[in-house]
Structures are given as C-alpha cells and as structure tokens.
C-alpha cells in the first residue's frame, strides 16, 4: 500500500533496465519498497539489478516482457498482479532512435511508434484495469519533454512520446474516483546509455536527478512532474513561442 507520505511497498517496472526507472527504484527501496518486479525483454539482462536489490533485502525478480508483443501483455501483467498488489507501476520502456536513423528506415520509425506509443497503450490499459480492481496504485508514465512540441531533430521520437503523454493524461482522468491514478513524468535530456553520443539539450539532467524529482513528486501527490522542474516554466512559454523562434532554438 502507498502510505500517507507517498511511499510505496511494491513496484513493477516495465522496461526494467531503464536507468531512470532503476534510479527511482533505488530511492524507493530506501523507504518502504520491499517487492520489485523488473519486466524486461531478456530477464537475464536484469540479473545484476535483481542481485543488487536482493542484497539490500528486497524481494526482487525479473520477468520477460516485450513492448513489441502487445498480445502477450495481458498474461504477463496478470501473473504479476496475481502474486499480490502492486502499488507503483513505472512504465519506462522505449526506443529512442535518432532522427537520421528514422529518416533512413521508416520501418524503424514504426517500431518506435509500436513500442513507445502502442506498447504503452496496451500495457497501460491492462495495468489500469488491475489498479482499478485493487482500488489503489499509481501508474507512472515516463514520457518526455519532446512530447510537447515537434522539433526537426526528433519529431518521430517526439510524436511517439506525444501519443503516450496524451494517453496517460486521459487515462489519469478516467481513473479519478477509482483509487488508482496516473502520474506523468516529462524528463528533459537525460544522460544515459540511450543518449550517449547525442548532443545534450540545455538543462540536461541525470537519471539520479530525475529520480529525486520523481520521488519528491510522488510524496507530494503530483500528477505531472517535469525533470528538472524548471522545464515546467520554460515550456509554459516555449510551447507558445512563434515557430520562427522555436526553430532557431531547436537548432
């Protein structure tokens, strides 16, 4: 159960090798979290994380989950919830890809859409149904600041995230009154394996800093979290900036 100060006892991570999600988990296990399920494409790939969590007394496990096989989502997620309540589901999987890669291979763009948007919708709907039935629980959707406005250098990725972000907002509203809720996290540029070699955008951040902001937001019961927080105010303006200016800023 989630407690009065936002601490959760059980966590499921979809995309359990995500550095941001693991940084969030590391902070949560310092609090009340005692059960962690890492859902990843190859369970072996998460073994080091499982061992690390087990060493600090957490009941940790890794299960097979593939965002690109939506027909399997109901069964995989059903098995997790059958083992006990999940207080927090972190939806953190995704394909980043660079715009030149997408330009060169439209089918790769489709894969990104199917994973980032399609997979988030199928797994999100299934998770929401379980949370509604258990009468509590939070679905934390990690979207992106790139979801807010199309940019020449990442519009395929940005549009997958825009779909996911909009879906999460609506789902959150649909769950009002059920005890379940959705929290949307919009990180800016985060230094991870996924972004290695890319040119960092202004106000870039790290997984640990994102985790800090997210855990604070969970404690305060926020529904929308920007990481770093300043992006909220920056984008309140940028979203309305004339396109000419936006293009120049976008580089």
């Amino acid at each position: 159960m989630r407690d009065a100060l936002g601490a959760v006892q059980s966590v499921l991570v979809l995309g359990g090798n995500s550095e941001i999600a693991l940084a969030i988990v590391d902070r949560l296990v310092e609090g009340r979290t005692r059960r962690v399920v890492l859902a990843v494409r190859e369970p072996d790939s998460a073994q080091r994380s499982v061992d690390r969590l087990t060493a600090v007394g957490v009941d940790a496990s890794a299960i097979a989950f593939d965002a690109l096989q939506p027909e399997t989502h109901a069964e995989v997620l059903g098995a997790v919830f059958a083992e006990g309540d999940i207080d927090l589901v972190i939806s953190a999987f995704g394909i980043l890809g660079s715009q030149p890669e997408f330009d060169a291979d439209p089918m790769f763009a489709l894969r990104a859409i199917n994973a980032n948007f399609g997979g988030a919708v199928t797994s999100g709907l299934i998770v929401a149904d379980h949370l509604r039935r258990q009468g509590h629980g939070t679905l934390l959707m990690i979207t992106s600041i790139a979801a807010l406005r199309g940019r020449a250098d990442n519009y395929v990725y940005g549009s997958t995230k825009a779909g996911q972000d909009l879906f999460a907002q609506g789902l959150g509203d649909a769950l009002v009154g059920s005890g379940a809720r959705v929290v949307v996290v919009r990180p800016g540029f985060v230094h991870t394996r996924m972004t290695e070699g890319m040119k960092p955008a202004p106000f870039s951040t790290t997984p640990d800093k994102v985790a800090e902001v997210v855990v604070e937001g969970l404690t305060k019961g926020r529904e929308l979290i920007y990481a770093p927080s300043i992006l909220r105010y920056l984008f309140a303006g940028l979203i309305h900036a004339p396109r000419l200016i936006w293009r120049r800023l976008g580089g």
Partner: peptide, 23 residues
C-alpha cells in the same frame, strides 16, 4: 464486459485526507 465486472467505486480516505483508495 471488463468494465462492468468492476464494481462502482468510491474513493475513501481517513481524517488526514492522505492515500485515498477506491472501494
């Protein structure tokens, strides 16, 4: 059908108004 199977839910909390859950 799935939506019908879930009973109508009301959010309840304690006097401290923290951690509401549906029942």
């Amino acid at each position: 059908a799935a939506a019908l199977a879930v009973p109508r839910s009301t959010e309840l909390f304690g006097w401290g108004r923290t951690a509401p859950t549906g029942a």
